[in-house]
Simulated assay, not measured.
Amino acid sequence: MDVKVQKNLLCLSREAAEFGPFDAILELEGEPDALWFYREHVSRGVPCIWRGAVAHWPAVSKWSNDYLRETVGSKEVSVAITPNGYADAVREDLNRFVMPHDQLMPVSQLLDVIERKEDFPGICYLQRQNSNFMEDFAELWKDTDLDIAWASKAFGAQPDAVNLWIGDERAVTSMHKDHYENLYCVVRGEKHFILLPPTDRPLIPHMKYASARYQLDLASREFSVVDEKDHGVIPWIPLDPQKPDLNRWPQYRHAHPLRCTLKAGDMLFLPSMWYHHVSQSQGAIAVNYWYDMAFDMRYAYFQCMDAITDTVAEGNCCAVGDHDIEDEQELSTGKT
């Protein structure tokens, strides 16, 4: 019975991709109509890119490191610090989900570390997702928009959070999903995304990990990993979509990853519940806008699919692999 469930979940992923379009990310130009955007992309959960959407922002031409030092250099902000560039990610050698060491740091020092002007014992990333742009960087508001007007009209609300991201090429965001509609705008450098639709959930391995956090001793320049018992067990994705281990996770070969690169001035609409992995170029800067998702029937369907997938996995069944799909055509036509 469980093998049949696995095969049907595989068919769900494949058929959803056919209805997509999930073969490529649509690229657009110009400001969209709010109704069109909601109808064609939000309601269908389909990502898209607007090339040059925020190229008119003063930030795109002004936000050099010298300008940032002059404008906000003395401001202390919370910076995520790790030994390997992966904050909020799985350390399989420790069987832990490890969060970054958080440290208050002047923006000028963060920029020095990114530029390698300071020999700092860790990789720093401004990535605090608490609407840090609105909370900490009022001096920079004039260089951007505080919301995306046509998106706010489409969603009928202002952004729930606006976040500023500053890092170098070593900082990587491991694959995960968010309960937000995300408009992601690159101000400087490049951002590289790998996206997978929510219907690929049965093909993406999830495991449960004890929580831990990096601690950095500046005197010894060494990191330790300390358990965070208050956070409990965290479900996370151990697979790296940049180099997936298909021997360990053979079902992932049936997934539908989409890759795109955003350059300065570009905007990505990343629908809620889409899985994403993010890497970047040296000194990249971005601003993103999170709008609350609609917790509606689609969310209920996803939760059901998530629960079924977990139940099958907990039954110690093998993952869906090439050897399991001989009857895929029969299942897709409704024959069992």
Rank of each mutant, 00 (worst) to 15 (best):
V3I: 04
K4Y: 12
Q6C: 04
S13L: 07
R14K: 12
A16H: 11
P21E: 07
D33N: 15
H41Q: 03
H41V: 04
G45S: 12
G45W: 03
R51K: 15
A53R: 08
V54P: 00
H56A: 15
W57N: 08
S64D: 10
L68H: 09
T71Q: 07
V72R: 01
E76N: 09
A80Q: 08
T82M: 07
Y86V: 11
A87C: 07
R91P: 00
R91C: 10
E92S: 13
F97V: 02
F97L: 02
V98N: 10
P100M: 01
D102K: 04
L104A: 15
L111D: 04
R116I: 03
R116W: 08
F120P: 12
F120W: 09
P121G: 08
G122P: 11
N132A: 10
L140S: 10
K142A: 14
K142D: 13
T144H: 02
Q158A: 14
L164F: 15
I166R: 00
T173I: 14
T173Q: 05
T173K: 00
D178E: 15
D178A: 14
N182M: 08
G189C: 10
K191W: 10
K191D: 08
H192M: 04
F193T: 04
F193P: 06
L196G: 12
P197Q: 08
P198Y: 11
P202M: 05
I204N: 08
K208Y: 10
A210S: 14
S211L: 03
L216S: 05
L216R: 01
A219G: 02
S224F: 00
K229V: 13
D230Y: 07
G232T: 02
I234S: 02
W236N: 12
P238G: 05
D240P: 07
K243C: 13
P244Y: 01
N247W: 01
N247I: 13
W249A: 04
Y252K: 04
R253L: 11
H256V: 09
L258H: 01
L262P: 06
L262C: 10
K263H: 14
L268F: 06
M273D: 12
W274R: 01
W274F: 01
Y275S: 06
Q280V: 11
S281P: 03
V287P: 04
V287W: 05
D296N: 15
D296P: 03
D296C: 13
Y299E: 08
Y299V: 14
A300I: 05
Y301W: 12
F302C: 01
C304V: 13
D310F: 00
D310V: 01
N316G: 09
C317Y: 13
C317I: 09
A319P: 15
G321K: 00
G321T: 07
D322E: 14
D322K: 09
I325M: 06
D327R: 12
Q329C: 05
